[in-house]
Write a protein that binds this DNA or RNA. Structure first.
Lengths: 98, 98
DNA sequence: ATAGTATATTATATAATTAGAATATTCACA
DNA sequence: TGTGAATATTCTAATTATATAATATACTAT
């Protein structure tokens, strides 16, 4: 047992974030949002998924605190909420280009 | 649709890695391994899980290419296989201390 | 060969996630 | 107020992940 290990409670929280990132479409949505905010419709077009599915994924990420939403008319704009996420995604993009 | 978005195939690969990281015990094991290689027994003691469970988690991470193993006598030493993982974990540790 | 220790595998029951379809809500505007 | 567009919610079936227990393998030393 070395120093500096995270507590197990904290591991559970971080694992939960990873779980939220562990779906290909959610990850793609997040990558899109790293370029700036988008509406649900734009995101759906970008990832080619049916609207309810996109909405479900966004809701899940919002509940996890990863993205935020604001309504403008009858569009809803989503954006990255946790400022550490883009760096995490950049770290991730260096991984195994196999 | 902006430039520089990862391909969907690549998102699937990266999401799979995230899924592997999305279990509290696996994440804890990885954090332990960031301090250097350890045997299955040491890891089991560190995270307080039964031996078969630890072994299952390690096998899964090995199949994903995240860790590697070498046998020495009847101990098996595990270590981080993908050199980008520690950076990914450090990025993650900056996230939401809630 | 036998016994003991360390690690790995398998089986199974349970729980969680996912896709897909249907429907509901919210808002703008005629 | 009523219609259409954008988004959200709910439900169900199918899939996948997990925990637990039992058992198997690999190696060392006697």
């Amino acid at each position: 047992m070395k120093k500096g290990l995270p507590e197990k409670r904290r591991c559970a929280r971080l694992a939960s974030i990873f779980k939220t990132l562990s779906h290909p479409q959610r990850l793609y949505l997040l990558c899109c949002l790293c370029d700036g905010e988008s509406t649900v419709g734009e995101l759906g077009a970008a990832c080619g998924a049916p609207q309810p599915v996109v909405s479900q994924h966004l809701t899940r990420m919002r509940l996890e605190g990863i993205v935020a939403s604001r309504r403008a008319g009858n569009h809803v704009h989503y954006s990255i909420a946790d400022p550490h996420i883009p760096a995490l995604i950049r770290s991730m993009e260096k991984i195994s280009h196999e």
